[in-house]
Amino acid sequence: MAGNFFAAVGASVLNLCAEVGGILTLLFRVLICLLPPRFDLDETWRNLHKMGVRSVPIIVLTAFFTGGIMVIQAAVFVKKFGATSLVGWGAGYAVFREIGPMLLGLMFSGRVGSNNTAELGTMVVTEQIDGLRALSIDPVRYLIVPRVLSMIVMLFLLTILGDVVAIVGAALFGTVLADVSLASFWVSFSQNVHVADVTHGLIKAAVFGFIVALTSCHFGITVKGGAVGVGRAVNNAVVAAALGIVLSDYLLTYALP
């Protein structure tokens, strides 16, 4: 009984080490391709469009209601204590530093990361990766590096867009639900929110993009088995990305000013 328990724990630890090692190996291979830059520009452009432009509607929707939710939660206390001058600052500070990058990162992982894992996994299963190698094309250089770059750049840019939309959402919901005028919201926001709050969140966004990219590519390219393997890889990639986002958020919140 105890032997089985320790065997299971040992197997899980070994499995975890293998996955972390695989991700680090992939990171190393990506860095080699970037120093100096040697990757496919057409493929990068295609991924920037697919991962970024097509994510705009869902990101805008998520961000708008995220800003709104911040105000809805605060509205009760704003009315109770008459703290209307704090609404703009509260919404801006929370959205820029924490809620914006975190929620958008998780949303991005669900939409883009899972899609990326499924796509790469299917390419493995249908021998497309072998096909590339048979044509002397390095799959890391041709497929992985463009995806990693696209995800970092696009989550960064989408977070800028999401921040703006979330603040607009917060201002509108504040006007309707908490009787905070737009002018009052703007004064509170512009006087108390600093550039450092914005850069703090954007650095987090870039790191989250990197984490989503590495985990989704790793689990995609190491798929084993058929459709079941692809499903399992997508599941693992989303869980690993979510864990990576939460852990790195914790560390970055401490480390960044």
Binding site: R46, T126, E127, Q128
Partner: peptide, 11 residues
């Protein structure tokens, strides 16, 4: 090489 699953690139 022609692969067993054809390995045509989906994209």
């Amino acid at each position: 090489m022609l692969f067993q699953n054809n390995a045509l690139f989906d994209f």
